[in-house]
Design a protein around this nucleic acid. Structure first.
Lengths: 195, 195
DNA sequence: CAAAAATATGACCGATTGGTCATTTATAAA
DNA sequence: TTTATAAATGACCAATCGGTCATATTTTTG
């Protein structure tokens, strides 16, 4: 990797958790300078402005989270195991897989009415998650693991929504109790549809 | 109402939707000045700083939403009717009851790691919603409307989480399709527990 | 109506914002 | 090793930020 690209990645690595924690608007270029110990001029060699850096940070957060998730899910052999791995991966919002919590929730709500580019990135991330879950269920049905009358697409939507909602509740209360109820409920539904 | 209190309320009325749309960090006092057509000095007669105004705006958004919700729910005579009214009230995230969408989601995610005061306000709002739903179900069970084995508290949590998650999904995609799936699923569960 | 108190104004403040650029330093190519 | 290219620096910029305050105006009180 060329020196330039190396520094660019280094900046993104340091910036991503800051943006995910403080939000885009509340994160300043000085915050990134402090975290990277780089000069202001150097930042602008690699990113033409704050918006571009923020977008790169959004992408990075989603990618890192996706890679960690896949690493966990790939340990499972069955469709049911994969769904459980997905649930377990996100079952602890107070100490989440990446600093700041779910980037879809964080950047999504901030970008909603103000940043169409980031909003579309988040929309893509949400769709990806729903499709991932839907295809696992479809695979499980094809496998003979799951009840063939189970609506894969609908449950994928419901499951994703419950996880995000549970994430919000638990982060606000500061403990994972409510998320555990979500986890328990989802696993029960999956069990009920397991043959 | 004294003149001072009148102006204070007027400022909050104008500021609340702006904060709910842009977020606290991204909303400037100039934004409020422009919306109210008041001078900067006048703002600081009624609010000692931006943080105090933002808190008042958060409270206001939650209160207005709560009043509108109660108005809809009070039309129902049965517990099932009240739950359906709650669901219908939030069933259209693209054109939500108040400008900017759900304040619990908006301010919650922003305040999460940065603003403990607002965070606690949102935590209170979330608890209130769960308790509201839980008590309606409990009432329905006492009534003989609902299956007495239904776990009121757990379903209240699940329902609230699904609504918030669905809200996020639909606002990001810009249409209510996924929220309709959430609505359909919740109503089906309620029907299944109706005697 | 007059005096006192509350409210509204806008110029002004220091600090910080995102962003630029001439210059220096380090890397890559010849 | 010399030369050309890329990257890093930090002083600097205009604009905006949240916030103050002397002054003017309006409202309330006696």
């Amino acid at each position: 990797m060329a020196k330039g690209e190396e520094t660019r990645q280094f900046i993104i690595d340091k910036a991503a958790p800051i943006f995910n924690t403080k939000g885009i608007a509340a994160t300043s270029m000085s915050d990134i300078m402090e975290a990277t110990k780089l000069s202001k001029g150097s930042m602008y060699v690699h990113f033409e402005n704050k918006e571009v850096l923020a977008c790169a940070a959004v992408d990075h957060n989603m990618k890192v989270l996706g890679v960690k998730l896949q690493a966990e899910m790939s340990k499972s052999k069955t469709a049911k195991g994969e769904l459980f791995a997905y649930i377990d991966f996100f079952s602890n919002p107070v100490t989440p897989p990446i600093i700041g919590g779910c980037p879809l929730l964080n950047f999504g709500t901030e970008a909603d009415d103000t940043n169409p580019i980031v909003k579309e990135k988040i929309n893509g991330g949400i769709k990806y998650n729903q499709q991932l879950l839907g295809s696992i269920i479809a695979k499980g049905i094809a496998n003979g693991e799951f009840n063939p009358n189970w609506n894969a697409s609908d449950f994928a939507t419901v499951m994703f929504a419950m996880m995000e909602g549970g994430h919000l509740i638990s982060r606000m209360s500061g403990n994972n109790d409510k998320m555990q109820i979500i986890v328990k409920t989802l696993k029960k539904i999956i069990e009920e549809n397991t043959l």
